[in-house]
Amino acid sequence: MASRFDALGDMYEEMFRLPWRAHLESFSVLRALGALEGEQIYDIGCGTGLYSRVMKRRGAARVVGYDISEGMIAVARRREADRPLGIEYTTTASDAEAGAFGRALGVYILPYAEDYTTLVEMCSIAARALRPGGLFVTLPVNPDYHGGRAYYERYGLRLFDAEPRADASRVTLELCFGRYAEQITARYWTRGTLERALRESGFEAIDWPAFRVSEEGIARYGEEFWHPYLDCPHASMITCAKV
């Protein structure tokens, strides 16, 4: 899977500026993470470092970005070299700093677990990094996402079943905005299985907070623009705490 993303760094950078990511997703994720001043944060599946940079600018004392894609990390390191923030980037998940972090973020990492064992392993990366009581925020595919091929098009994406929905079944994500038309295969997981994997990995207090839109997003695009996504988002947000 890493090689599939090595060449997509520029697209992911531009996608972060789309309205739904700028005014809904990132707004909601940062609300869920809470105050970041002085925190140590582990950004799992950091890609080109988009969230890593935002969190560091919001006062995090330390941010470590981890991704298995050499291409994504190369872009992240170039951004760090151009405008140094003191972010560390790595392609290796090490246990050397187990329990060192107060927050862990995993945006769209769980949809790439192809089986339950891998799903638990991904959750466990976050659990090992966190100290007891540490917060993990992650975004899987919404177990109840809308199956209509065109439902999310106004936001620059399409998401639809590639096979009947069941744990680990394939879903097709099409990123369709600007000059881009990329198709990615992700995996669907039921709500119960996601919660079971998190508990098995050492998490408790599992919650599914709703997405919210920033005041700027409403002012710029109007409330009607956001209704389809808020009614049935393509992703869910999960928060949980390390036991």
Rank of each mutant, 00 (worst) to 15 (best):
A2V: 05
S3C: 00
S3N: 14
R4V: 09
M15E: 04
R17H: 13
A22W: 02
E25R: 06
S26A: 10
F27I: 00
L30N: 10
L30Y: 07
R31W: 05
L33P: 00
L33A: 00
A35M: 14
I41V: 13
I44K: 01
L50T: 08
Y51S: 05
S52N: 11
S52H: 02
K56Y: 03
R57T: 07
A60E: 02
V63E: 07
V64D: 01
S69K: 06
E70Y: 11
A81L: 13
A81N: 13
R83F: 06
R83V: 05
L85H: 04
T90W: 01
S94W: 15
S94G: 08
A100I: 15
A100C: 12
F101P: 03
G102C: 10
R103T: 05
V107A: 05
L110R: 08
L119Y: 13
V120A: 10
V120M: 01
I125V: 07
A127V: 02
R128V: 11
P132D: 08
P132T: 12
G134M: 04
P140W: 02
P140K: 05
V141C: 00
P143N: 08
D144M: 01
D144R: 10
Y145M: 04
G147L: 06
Y152I: 03
L157N: 01
L159R: 01
F160S: 07
P164H: 10
R165G: 06
D167F: 09
R170P: 03
T172M: 05
L173Y: 06
L175Q: 06
G178Q: 11
G178I: 08
Q183L: 11
I184S: 13
T185G: 07
T185N: 10
A186T: 04
R191E: 14
T193F: 07
L194A: 13
R199G: 11
R199H: 15
S201T: 13
E204P: 15
A205E: 13
F211W: 11
R212T: 14
A219R: 02
Y221T: 01
W226L: 09
H227C: 06
D231W: 14
C232D: 04
C232M: 14
C232K: 07
A235G: 03
M237A: 15
I238H: 00
C240E: 02
C240W: 04
A241F: 15
